[in-house]
């Protein structure tokens, strides 16, 4: 039930953002308010179960992301370390495109995260940062299989590959 309301309210905010400035009630017209409410209720009924799946064995629920403090941390992470790492990643790829020096391989990482959101966040961060690309996830243990473009160590720790991202993902999602 909680999942339904959260999804519906999220969809409603998204609708209002898209139709910003269409009328005079605050900033939206009456039609947009009504159709937005109806549509977001429908979306909540259909997608609520998908967006927040039931609690699994040994994994924590995704509903803990409702805490606004976590969103603030997420924003700080996005603007600070993430953007910097992304800039470095692109210069790295540029270097490899021009020189053609590669030493690829697939390694296994055990970040030890216990939420789905944390694992997703870490996997996406890894994909967008220097020389690494997530290929597969072991769903029971949360281990990641990462394609590394320049292998320095065949059995690395999670910190050796993605630096402070594990700490950030843990701070944000757990």
């Amino acid at each position: 039930m909680l999942a339904f309301f959260v999804t519906a309210i999220g969809a409603f905010f998204f609708y209002l953002l898209l139709t910003f400035g269409s009328g005079t009630i605050v900033a939206w017209s009456l039609e947009e308010w009504i159709s937005g409410a109806v549509l977001s209720l429908i979306v909540g009924a259909i997608a609520g179960r998908v967006a927040f799946n039931r609690k699994k064995e040994g994994r924590k629920s995704s509903l803990r992301m409702l805490n606004p403090l976590r969103w603030l941390l997420f924003l700080v992470y996005l603007i600070g370390p993430f953007l910097w790492a992304m800039a470095k990643a692109n210069l790295d790829v540029a270097y490899r495109v021009i020189t053609g020096k590669i030493r690829p391989g697939i390694v296994r990482l055990s970040p030890g995260l216990s939420t789905d959101f944390g694992t997703t966040l870490l996997a996406n961060s890894i994909t967008l940062t220097p020389g690494t690309l997530t290929v597969d996830v072991d769903e029971e243990s949360g281990d990641l299989f990462v394609h590394w473009i320049n292998v320095r160590d065949t059995d690395p720790s999670a910190e050796a590959v993605c630096g402070s991202f594990v700490d950030w993902a843990r701070r944000i999602a757990e």
């Binding site: 690829p104 994909t127 065949t154």
Partner: peptide, 29 residues
Amino acid sequence: PTGSHAIARAAYRSGVKPKGAVVDKLEDR
């Protein structure tokens, strides 16, 4: 990035091995 995971995983499962790889931990699993 989510789409690129999907492609990488699909490519691996459809039998494309990384060319010139020095290590391949997924193969054992």
